[in-house]
Deep mutational scan, measured.
Amino acid sequence: SRWTEEEMETAKKGLLEHGRNWSAIARMVGSKTVSQCKNFYFNYKKRQNLDEILQQHK
């Protein structure tokens, strides 16, 4: 299923807060499964600069 802007923003916040904790990110997004969140990261990594966001994760 397609990702809305809102879901993407929430997933990015999740990456920032939780790093690669996909289940925590899935809980934040609410409408996507753990594997969908993981796939989002790998599919949108380049397009959305997700690696940069991940590097900011403490």
Rank of each mutant, 00 (worst) to 15 (best):
Q36K: 12
E5L: 08
T33M: 12
T33P: 00
V29K: 00
H18A: 02
N43P: 02
V34C: 07
T10E: 11
R2N: 15
I25G: 00
S31W: 03
S23E: 15
R2E: 15
Q48H: 14
K32F: 02
R27G: 08
Y41G: 02
I53A: 14
H57M: 01
N39W: 14
G14D: 00
V29M: 08
E7S: 09
M8R: 07
K32A: 03
G19Y: 08
K13V: 04
M8A: 05
A26H: 01
H18Q: 07
N39P: 01
S23F: 12
E6C: 01
F42A: 12
N49C: 04
L16D: 01
F40Y: 01
W3N: 09
L15T: 01
F40S: 01
S35Q: 13
N49M: 04
L50M: 06
G19L: 15
W3M: 14
Y44N: 11
R20G: 07
T10K: 14
Y44D: 03
R20M: 14
H57K: 12
E17V: 09
V29G: 02
F42H: 14
D51N: 03
Q36Y: 14
R27P: 01
E17C: 06
R20H: 02
E7T: 04
N49Y: 06
N43S: 07
T10M: 11
M28V: 06
G14F: 03
A26R: 01
F40G: 01
Q36R: 11
C37S: 00
S23A: 11
I53C: 11
A26F: 10
K13A: 07
L15C: 05
T33S: 13
K45H: 06
E52N: 01
R20L: 14
R47G: 04
Q55K: 14
Y41A: 04
W3C: 13
S23I: 13
A11E: 05
K38I: 08
K45E: 10
K58Y: 15
I25T: 01
Q55R: 09
K46W: 02
T33C: 12
E17A: 08
A26I: 13
L16R: 11
A26M: 08
T4S: 03
K46N: 12
G14S: 09
T10D: 06
N49H: 08
G19R: 06
A11P: 08
K45F: 09
M28F: 09
R27Y: 03
G19N: 01
R20N: 11
E52P: 07
E52R: 06
K13H: 02
A26T: 02
I53M: 11
M28S: 10
E52A: 14
S23D: 15
A11S: 05
N39H: 08
E6Y: 06
H57Q: 12
R47Q: 08
M28N: 06
T33E: 03
Q36L: 13
T10A: 07
A11K: 13
E7G: 07
R27C: 02
K46F: 01
Q48Y: 15
I25F: 02
N21V: 15
R27F: 04
R20P: 09
E6A: 14
I25W: 15
A11L: 13
H57V: 13
T33R: 00
M28Q: 13
V29Y: 02
K46Q: 12
E5F: 04
W22L: 05
H18V: 07
E52V: 08
S23K: 11
Q55G: 10
S23L: 14
V29I: 12
F42I: 13
R2L: 13
K45C: 07
K46G: 09
R2M: 12
E6F: 04
A24H: 03
L54Y: 04
E6S: 10
N49W: 02
K32S: 01
I25R: 05
C37L: 14
F42K: 15
I53Y: 12
K58N: 04
D51G: 07
L50P: 07
T33G: 04
V29P: 00
Q48A: 13
V29R: 01
L54C: 08
D51A: 10
L16K: 13
T4G: 01
N49T: 09
I25M: 08
H57T: 13
I25A: 03
F40A: 03
S35I: 11
N49L: 07
T4A: 00
R2T: 14
F40Q: 00
F42S: 12
S31F: 01
E9T: 14
S1A: 03
W3L: 09
N43K: 09
N39A: 12
Q48K: 15
G30H: 00
W3D: 08
F42V: 12
M28E: 15
L54E: 07
S35K: 13
Y44S: 09
S23M: 11
R2I: 14
H57Y: 09
D51V: 02
S31A: 08
R47A: 14
T33H: 00
Q55L: 08
L50S: 10
T10V: 10
Q48C: 07
E9F: 00
Q55T: 08
A26Y: 00
A11T: 04
K45V: 13
R27V: 05
F40N: 01
A24V: 09
M8N: 09
R27D: 11
G30D: 00
S23Q: 13
A11Y: 15
A24P: 02
V29H: 00
E5Q: 09
M8H: 09
E17K: 11
Q55Y: 03
S35D: 15
W22G: 03
Y41D: 00
A24I: 04
F42Y: 15
A24R: 08
G14E: 00
Y41S: 02
N49R: 11
Q48F: 13
K46P: 11
V34N: 02
V34A: 13
R27T: 12
E6D: 10
H18M: 03
G30C: 10
L50G: 13
N39F: 05
S35M: 10
G30Q: 03
M8L: 04
N49F: 06
E9C: 07
G19D: 01
